[in-house]
Design a protein around this nucleic acid. Structure first.
Lengths: 87, 87
DNA sequence: TGAAATTTGTGCGTATGTATT
DNA sequence: GAATACATACGCACAAATTTC
């Protein structure tokens, strides 16, 4: 892994938006799935890593992934990780 | 309001149980609804009050009420409160 | 008008437990 | 057993919606 594997800039999640940050994050991830950047079966970064990388709290990531699980876009397996659903 | 409006003892929620505390709390509230102690339309105590009264974290109450909302046993209105659903 | 009180919603940080590798 | 990753639980602070005065 390079020292700087920073490919795409993290979007700025705005706390002052009427849209909660966790929804912004969920939409951001959903968009990456929709665009094909995240393929079916692909594993998402660990939630703590996403928390750090996206500059939001772990709790916020948890809310975002909970939304995406409800939307059936991802599945989460304890101890393994979070994956883009196979279509 | 009396100084001590402590009618029924709070059950002991066990953190070491395989059943998460928030599920135990949800089941406890569901049982009070099923028994008729909490009638349809009745407002539940404020979540922060339940947190204090039941001796669990606000986060835990939030998880419990989220479960009950999913089960359609209660409805929550921001700024108003949480109510037992009208049958 | 609007200010205060009440209640739920969101966001952050931390610690510990459980499951998988 | 160790490392990794999700799950639960606690505490705190501030924002938003509702009601009341």
């Amino acid at each position: 892994m390079p020292y700087h594997d920073h490919v795409s800039d993290s979007p700025e999640f705005k706390a002052d938006s009427p849209t909660p940050v966790y929804v912004q994050v969920a939409d951001y991830i959903a968009a990456r799935i929709a665009s094909g950047e995240l393929q079916p079966g692909a594993r998402l970064p660990a939630e703590r890593d996403m928390s750090r990388d996206l500059g939001v709290a772990y709790d916020t990531i948890r809310r975002a992934t909970a939304l995406l699980r409800e939307r059936k876009l991802i599945v989460t397996v304890v101890g393994k990780g979070t994956y883009v659903v196979e279509r």
